[in-house]
Nucleic acid binder design. Structure first.
Lengths: 155, 155
DNA sequence: CGATTTAGTTATTTCATATAACAAAGTTGG
DNA sequence: CCAACTTTGTTATATGAAATAACTAAATCG
């Protein structure tokens, strides 16, 4: 019964689910010492890279719904890693900016995640890693296009 | 703000999460006409391919916890797609076997999922698809090994 | 100005996954 | 053989991710 799922292994979705479960466990273990989860880490990185962006822009960037982002931003703010600054010209919006401790924690966590990435992709040569990145991007794009009823480009 | 997440896109875990979300939406839409979800489909395929296996073996094959499998098997059984047959030599265990309608539905759903797979991987050449499959398998294996404290093979 | 849209929020729901604890059956070692 | 332990399937429960509806305040549009 070693390969009972051989039929399913033809499908990238099945393989991605399995691989992602393994990755997520390691990501969470890696981020735990920093008090971060996958979402809070992702949000922090984007805020550090794009200081001053709004919550809507952040949600759009990460492809998560605005309501689900609120608690994430709350968490980062309450830990003093970012600030919610009212936009001076649009008083509905916040501009999210990292604090100095936020930038520092982000850099440390990024280094740890770089190590994590190296562990997980050990034994995969550079060409295959590039193919992986390109293929995942393409699959995401194809999936979105199908879902939105768009034409799927052929190359 | 088109590429606000460029730093994160270095990481296969982030790309996998995004790609998988897109894939899952399309998988569920594809399976909906058959009354199947991703888990019930996966379970049905493995049962068809391995008639007579136990619930524990099925759970192990799909890497899901035994308690979470119970409702999945209940669902397939109540729809008449599989049977739970008591093992004659181990009265604790069930042997899961597909019914004729179960096999038929499985074949139809598999064909639909083949189409889905073709849609999602459109524009990815054969070499890159092979690299994707190999890389995902390797990442899952590396992740498991790290999690279990094993040595990570280098090639 | 009134109608519509946008930003952020709240509350709620659904779903997937994980854990603990159990009964019944099987296995093992003294 | 029998007590201790393990395994199978189950129940109940907790957790966390993700989606939706509805609301407010503010901005924009006609």
């Amino acid at each position: 019964m070693t390969k009972a799922d051989r039929t399913l292994r033809r499908f990238s979705g099945y393989l991605m689910k399995r691989a992602f479960n393994a990755v997520q466990a390691d990501v969470n273990a890696t981020l735990h010492p920093f008090g971060l989860r996958m979402v809070t880490f992702s949000a922090l990185v984007v805020i550090v890279d794009n200081a001053g962006l709004s919550q809507s822009q952040l949600a759009e960037s990460l492809s998560i719904e605005r309501p689900n982002l609120v608690l994430v931003v709350d968490e980062l703010e309450s830990r003093g890693l970012i600030l919610r600054q009212r936009d001076k010209t649009d008083r509905r919006a916040y501009r999210l900016v990292p604090t100095a401790p936020g930038r520092k924690l982000c850099a440390s966590a990024l280094a740890a995640i770089d190590d994590h990435e190296a562990r997980l992709t050990a034994g995969i040569d550079a060409g295959d890693r590039a193919a992986l990145v390109a293929a995942l991007g393409r699959i995401e794009s194809n999936g979105r296009n199908v879902h939105e009823g768009r034409h799927v480009a052929r190359s």
